[in-house]
Every structure is written in structure tokens, then in C-alpha cells.
């Protein structure tokens, strides 16, 4: 099946990648932008540009990497554009959860998600790609366009912020 895939047309690549990855990518984008409607648009547009770039990508791994990159970038600019009406207000420093935040949180799960949303952008992206999308350090570096050392550092800082939250609440 892989052999067939390697020589697939752009149309077939869209179908195959859609079948295998659409749900996961929408969920990733939804956690980056905060709502699934926007996330679907972001992912659909990424598929459209991937289709247009297929002559250059030609293999499913590269196409998937391209999709991830496009989705992270697009999610980022979406967030920037609607910062004013953000569902999640601008974050205080991650290790100082606000009083409102604790009042709103219903469970440890909500607290962790809220804390993830309030992390600095790179840390949040790194943690989502690592612990939701299960990407390797190299894949994350590629997706975010940063060095592997920077990935390591963002991940450690993000986890450390969450760790201090968990220690406070447990």
C-alpha cells in the first residue's frame, strides 16, 4: 500500500492523509486555538495548500510535516488576530495562577488545561506536539522552526510550570 501511496496523485494524498490524520490535526489545532470550528478551517486550509504543494512534497511523511507546520502557524496567527475577544484572557505568569482561575476550575483536569493555555506560546506548542501528537524532539523542532535545544528547553520549562501547579494543588 505504501508503494501505491508514494506515486499517488495530490488528490489521493489528500484523501489518504485526511483518513489517517484529519481528526488528530483538528484536535491539535483546537487545543491551540481554543475552539473546534476555527480549528477545522485551519486544518482544511492547510490541506488545500498541501495539495497545491504536493509536487514538492511527494511523500506522505513530508506532506504530514508540512501540514503540521501550516497548522501551527495558522493557529498562531488566528490567535493573534482575535486576541481582543479571546475566550481565554491573556495569561498571568504560569506559576502564579489567578484567583479567578481557581474559582473557575472544576477539576484538576480543567486546571491543567487552563495552565497549559496560559503557558507562553512556544512552551504550549511544544507540550502539545510532544504529549498529544507524540512527536519526537526533531519533529517538533522542524514543526516550530526552532532548534532541538530550544525544544528541550521549552518542554522542560512548560513541564516545570505544570509541575509546580500540581504540587500546589495536590
Amino acid at each position: 500500500m505504501l508503494g501505491q501511496f508514494e506515486t499517488a496523485t495530490a488528490d489521493e494524498a489528500v484523501v489518504e492523509l485526511y483518513r489517517a490524520h484529519y481528526n488528530g490535526l483538528v484536535r491539535l489545532s483546537a487545543m491551540l486555538v481554543g475552539d473546534s470550528g476555527t480549528a477545522e478551517e485551519v486544518v482544511q486550509d492547510a490541506f488545500v495548500t498541501m495539495h497545491g504543494s504536493w509536487h514538492r512534497l511527494r511523500d506522505p511523511e513530508k506532506a504530514l510535516a508540512y501540514l503540521r507546520q501550516a497548522i501551527v502557524n495558522r493557529s498562531r496567527s488566528t490567535l493573534r488576530h482575535r486576541a481582543v475577544v479571546a475566550k481565554y484572557p491573556p495569561a498571568p505568569p504560569p506559576d502564579v495562577p489567578s484567583a479567578e482561575y481557581f474559582a473557575l476550575a472544576h477539576s484538576e483536569r480543567d486546571e491543567i488545561m487552563a495552565a497549559v493555555r496560559r503557558l507562553p506560546r512556544r512552551q504550549r506548542e511544544t507540550l502539545l506536539l510532544r504529549y498529544y501528537s507524540d512527536l519526537s524532539e526533531a519533529q517538533i523542532a522542524d514543526t516550530l522552526g526552532i532548534s532541538q535545544g530550544a525544544v528541550k528547553s521549552h518542554a522542560s520549562r512548560g513541564l516545570a510550570a505544570l509541575r509546580s501547579l500540581l504540587e500546589k494543588t495536590s
Partner: peptide, 24 residues
């Protein structure tokens, strides 16, 4: 724990069934 929470959060998000048609 982060892995569990993200996986739980992700499961609550249901992508629509017609994504491929929209992309096409």
C-alpha cells in the same frame, strides 16, 4: 498526567464528518 489530560481533552473534540468534502 499531562498526556492523560490532553488525550481526554482531545476526545471531547469531534471533528465533523464532512471535512474531506469541504477540502475538496
Amino acid at each position: 498526567r499531562l498526556r492523560e489530560v490532553l488525550s481526554h481533552e482531545a476526545r471531547a473534540i469531534t471533528p465533523s464528518a464532512d471535512g474531506l468534502a469541504i477540502i475538496r
